[in-house]
Simulated scan of single mutants.
Amino acid sequence: MGMAEIGKLKIATLVLVFISLCLLVAGMATRWYYITYSNTVTGVTYDISMYSPKIVTTVETLTMTSTPDNMNWGDFNLKNTHNIFNTGLAFSAFAFMIGFFTIIITILNQVGILRNEKIWTIARGMVIGMLICTFIAVCVMAGTTKAFEKDEDDGTKFIFCVNTCDTKWRGTISYNGSVVKFGPGTGWILVIIALFVELATTICVVLSFIMGRSEN
């Protein structure tokens, strides 16, 4: 009965790691931060989506919406903020790679190609490593506000963050006929969901470890 339960936990681990990989890929592909600047007098809205490799802007008026314009971080002198995004993406990528290899070696162990008994132990350790990397990727975004503030001190050309996202992490601020909304984007939220999936995965590997010890 114990071995059968451990087998089920291995399958659950594979499924949960796969789900986490899908969430991480989607998270890395979508924006991690957004700023929407609307001028209530002119009716012009700037939608700014921040990804690690680029900043995408669109302009919407009462009559039209522009095509997305891909811009470089260097165009705005946002070096410190860009480092935050790069760090988040890097640790998300690390988590993805760890999860990918976890699936590979677990499957090979299950089908009998890798018969070493330590393979499952290694896979369980990798799941914890994946969790740690994703946790860091999520937490690093907490430094966004300070990064915007430091870039402003260094002479940023990014006017949309002045007195808005350089003062707090997310929110809506109105001033001089303008409304600015800003905060974490879909990508960061998906990585948070992946983190919770990985927590469930870690519970599975801990249970399998406990059950394996009791069998011995």
Rank of each mutant, 00 (worst) to 15 (best):
Y175W: 07
D166I: 05
D153S: 09
N116C: 15
G125R: 00
A123I: 02
K118M: 08
L207V: 12
I132C: 01
E117M: 09
F182G: 02
F100S: 09
K181A: 12
I107K: 00
M130P: 02
L195Q: 12
W169P: 06
I105S: 10
M211T: 10
I189M: 14
A90R: 06
I104D: 14
M126K: 03
D153I: 15
P184H: 11
N116Y: 10
Y175K: 09
Q110H: 07
I192P: 11
K157Q: 06
C165E: 03
L114N: 08
C204P: 00
L114W: 13
M141A: 05
S174V: 11
K168C: 10
A147P: 04
F148Y: 11
G125T: 04
I173V: 12
W188V: 08
A93S: 11
N109D: 11
S92K: 06
G177N: 10
V111I: 15
A200Q: 02
Y175G: 10
S208R: 11
F94E: 00
K157Y: 08
F182R: 01
S208E: 15
I193S: 03
L131K: 03
L207N: 09
W120N: 14
F96I: 02
S92Y: 01
A137S: 12
C133S: 15
I98N: 01
T106V: 15
K157S: 08
G125S: 00
C204E: 04
K181M: 10
G185H: 03
N116K: 12
I122W: 14
I173H: 10
A194H: 01
S208H: 01
G183T: 05
